[in-house]
């Protein structure tokens, strides 16, 4: 049969008509409906109606606990937070006691990563630099969440002229890249002369909020006409209370995901600003400052630049991985596929 199908033979041999035996199923289709006496009514009765069905968060948590990505990133973040709070536990050398005699020396006992050009202990500075980066990251994210969250929620929920104004405002701030905007703010005399962790936080919040505002606005718009919001309003809840009690809690998932990832990018932004010399003051031990100080020596002694960079990258990576894991866990639709 199969050789007849090759066309180059050119034979027009009539294909023997295969009698198609319409397969009428001989199976009897069983509609299984259990007779009443076999229905385990007792089991149905035993279902505990008082147990609360799993909320999105409980469901996400159950899913997260099994994800290696989440476990690794959570442990790393825990480690970073502990290091930031009590750096003395991890490094026993004072990061500010530097002897020029040790300038650019290699590793030796008690100083596993060697010395900087100024003769400071690289390992100790790496450990003590954690606090500045984490403080900037956390407080910038908080500030962005507060400003962007309020702006986005109001714009999305009330719509109309408020939405138009707030959306345009966000567009305006969005037109300047984060780093560029932060540089401009940081070079203002007021900021330049009072450099601290907080000036960096303010500069980053000022140009970082539109992203969260956009995400919040989208999530709120998705939820504002949901049945449960309508029901709450029908039961007499004021629109503002409905926003706070029902819309916002149900819009949190995408906001948390983006916040976690932005925390990483804010830490990078702080390091970039410090690297450019307009971020944290030099008196603050930070990864960005150390990388900046090490750049003149990068060809002779690259490890001095590398270690703070590794610490920085691992911290940022763990926040981004956490965001990725949260995204997977908080989006049940994507998970089923």
């Amino acid at each position: 049969m199969s050789e007849n199908l090759t066309p180059d033979k050119g034979t027009t041999e009539p294909v023997t008509p295969v009698t198609r035996q319409g397969k009428i199923s001989s199976r009897t289709i069983e509609h299984f409906v259990a007779p009443l006496e076999e229905t385990p009514l007792a089991a149905v009765d035993n279902v505990d109606e008082t147990t609360v069905s799993l909320s999105l968060w409980a469901d996400a948590w159950r899913n997260l606990r099994k994800q290696p990505l989440f476990i690794i990133s959570a442990l790393l973040i825990l480690l970073v937070v502990v290091v930031a709070i009590v750096p003395g536990l991890f490094a026993h050398v004072d990061p500010t006691s530097c002897t020029l005699a040790d300038s650019a020396e290699g590793p030796r006992s008690g100083h596993p990563l060697g010395f900087t050009l100024q003769g400071c202990d690289v390992y100790s500075r790496m450990i003590y630099g954690t606090r500045a980066s984490l403080t900037v990251g956390i407080f910038t994210t908080l500030g962005v969440l507060i400003i962007g969250g309020i702006m986005g929620a109001l714009a999305g929920y009330y719509g109309g002229w408020l939405d138009t104004i707030l959306a345009r405002l966000a567009d305006i701030f969005f037109a300047l890249p984060l780093i560029l905007g932060a540089i401009i703010i940081n070079q203002l005399p007021l900021f330049r002369d009072n450099k601290s962790v907080w000036t960096v936080v303010i500069a980053l919040v000022a140009f970082g909020w539109p992203q969260i505002a956009r995400i919040t606005r989208g999530a709120v718009i998705e939820n504002r006409n949901a049945d449960f919001v309508m029901a709450a309003k029908a039961l007499g809840l004021s629109p503002f209370r409905a926003l706070m009690k029902h819309v916002v809690p149900n819009s949190l998932a995408p906001i948390i995901v983006v916040a976690s990832i932005s925390l990483g990018t804010f830490i990078v932004a702080e390091a970039t600003l410090s690297f450019l010399g307009i971020g944290l003051p030099f008196s603050v031990i930070s990864w960005g400052n150390d990388i900046s100080a090490a750049q003149t020596q990068v060809r002779n002694n690259p490890s001095v630049l590398l270690w703070p960079a590794v610490a920085l990258s691992i911290t940022v990576l763990s926040f981004i991985m956490l965001g990725d894991a949260l995204r997977d866990a908080l989006d049940p639709k994507a998970r089923k596929r």
Partner: peptide, 18 residues
């Protein structure tokens, strides 16, 4: 891609330059 996102541009720049 995760690693590239996490490593700051200025570190990537120095490493590739070196």
């Amino acid at each position: 891609s995760l690693v590239v996102i996490a490593v700051p541009t200025f570190v990537l720049g120095f490493v590739l330059q070196l």
